[in-house]
Design a protein around this nucleic acid. Structure first.
Lengths: 138, 138
DNA sequence: AAAAACCCGAGAGAATCGCTCGGGTTTAAT
DNA sequence: ATTAAACCCGAGCGATTCTCTCGGGTTTTT
């Protein structure tokens, strides 16, 4: 029951991106050094972020990535989902109907837990995280 | 980001145990058949539950396991923690102080997520689950 | 005595994680 | 035009974790 590094790295990387605001694209190399993450691993992560249309890639020299929309309109939930898939703590296939009733009582529990996680993640925008980072520095 | 089967099985097994109330110990074989879980895997799970003093083992023929305390006094959080360890979605070692400030902004986020999970799990007693199982059957 | 059941450590097969490798292609700068 | 920076992408690899299985116990009831 733990978030893989992929999700953690993705959020950290997006914070870096957001902090550099509109000042041109940010290269993966920069993020990699700043956050001490493998550059090639970051590439994989950004493929997911790009597919989810959270970032835009700028190719060529002095390229990099920029946010695809303002940080107020992006939540940590969006970011985590982009690289890790849907936020659910167990995957139950029998949707709605189980053979064993006992099993499905617990399913409701896991769904409530997943919902609680989503609620926190979806309530926190990227802008919120940047704001807090700013507060910490000062 | 998913709960291992160990945690899921543990809760399901405890529901079975609770539903058999005070009517003597319940054998692992019974639970294993009822819930379609490997009996030997269940043994491992019950070692954890026993260490956490949630169940009591009764050795010998016609033995099995009983709840160590009333189901109202046991939460799904207790059960999950017993077999899976502390409920936290990332493990950050730097407690309180990080070198990179950016990293630690996100740490607060993971802590809030973990807290939200705990809240749901700790608010649901074993008795609650049994009650719902009863409702489902009728 | 025999059988039922818990107790327990070790390990095996598969899946997942956390990357790395080796190639591209695109574009800015010189 | 050339070079170099940077994104793009598929494949694979070592380590870890998960999900059990195996092979032995020991305890207690019948």
């Amino acid at each position: 029951m733990r978030l893989s590094t992929k999700g953690q790295y993705a959020v950290r990387a997006m914070v870096v991106l957001a902090m550099h605001g509109g000042a041109g694209p940010v290269s993966l190399r920069f993020i990699a050094e700043r956050e001490d993450i493998s550059e090639q691993y970051l590439e994989q992560i950004f493929i997911g972020l790009k597919k989810a249309q959270l970032v835009k890639g700028v190719r060529g020299a002095s390229g990099g990535y920029t946010l695809a929309k303002p940080s107020q309109l992006m939540t940590s939930g969006d970011i985590v989902r982009a690289v890790e898939g849907p936020i659910k703590i167990v995957d139950c296939e029998h949707n709605g109907t189980c053979e064993r009733v006992q099993s499905c009582v617990t399913r409701e529990l896991w769904e409530r837990v997943s919902a609680a996680m989503s609620q926190v993640l979806d309530a926190t925008t990227l802008a919120d995280l940047v704001l807090r980072a700013g507060e910490k520095i000062n």
